[in-house]
């Protein structure tokens, strides 16, 4: 029997407050755009199903609070992600500078295998641009990441960005997935795989439990 989806991945949106993480997510999952900025205070998530190479990939995208005061807490979510979007705002030099800090946090807290992608959001705001595309490209190269300039407002490069990261995560986990397919015939997800390897807590399926360790 054909499976409607086969894999579950967790992707995490990181970046300074106000760079548009929530907007990227809303545009991608609901194809909606809300111009007013309401700070995410907490960790929100949405689901989306993608078909990649015929495999139905369900991705759970976590949108995190960008404000600095919450960072000690949000860091604890990194380790459960398989892919991370590092988002800055092309109209904010500061948010671009901070990518370094975000990236080093990711190195410290996220799993080694985590896939990263650099995103320069608000590409529609040409007049206010403070970060040149070349700068983004250069930084992404330095980190060995892919790079996209996006606009949640005009829906520019949104699907491309999310799909690209999902593809990378899929490729990075291909070996494990193949192994798992050998042994079970059911729906499963990477989180379950991690559990078996003892990398993860008692998180089952896409349910998160009230435990961090």
């Amino acid at each position: 029997m054909a499976k409607q989806y086969d894999v579950l991945f967790r992707l995490l949106l990181l970046g300074d407050s106000g760079v548009g993480k929530t907007c990227l997510l809303c545009r991608f999952t609901d194809n909606e755009f809300h111009p007013s900025h309401i700070s995410t205070i907490g960790v929100d998530f949405k689901m989306k199903t993608l078909v990649i190479d015929g495999i139905k990939v369900r991705i759970q995208i976590w949108d995190t609070a960008g404000q600095e005061r919450y960072q000690t807490i949000t860091k604890q979510y990194y380790r459960r992600a398989q892919g991370i979007f590092l988002v800055y705002d092309i109209t904010s030099e500061r948010s671009f500078q901070h990518i370094m800090k975000w990236a080093s946090d990711v190195d410290e807290y996220a799993p080694d295998k985590v896939q990263k992608i650099l995103v320069g959001n608000k590409s529609d705001e040409v007049d206010k641009r403070q970060v040149a595309t070349e700068q983004g490209i250069k930084l992404a190269e330095a980190y060995g990441m892919d790079f996209f300039e996006t606009s949640a407002f005009t829906n520019h490069n949104i699907t491309e960005t999310f799909t690209r990261l999902a593809e990378q995560v899929l490729a990075a986990n291909k070996k494990d997935l193949d192994l798992l397919w050998m042994s079970i015939n059911d729906e499963f997800n990477l989180a379950a795989l991690e559990e078996e390897e003892g990398l993860c807590d008692s998180v089952t399926g896409d349910q998160r439990k009230g435990c961090w360790c």
């Binding site: 029997m1 054909a2 499976k3 409607q4 086969d6 078909v51 015929g54 050998m182 015939n185």
Partner: peptide, 29 residues
């Protein structure tokens, strides 16, 4: 129960093309 059947219809071929191959792999093992 190792499910022995796999729909071969277009529907499934469209969007589940490799589920068949995965399964046959399971079988062969």
């Amino acid at each position: 129960t190792e499910k022995s059947l796999d729909k071969k219809g277009d529907l499934e071929r469209e969007n589940g093309s490799n589920s068949g191959t995965q399964k046959s792999r399971v079988y062969s093992s």
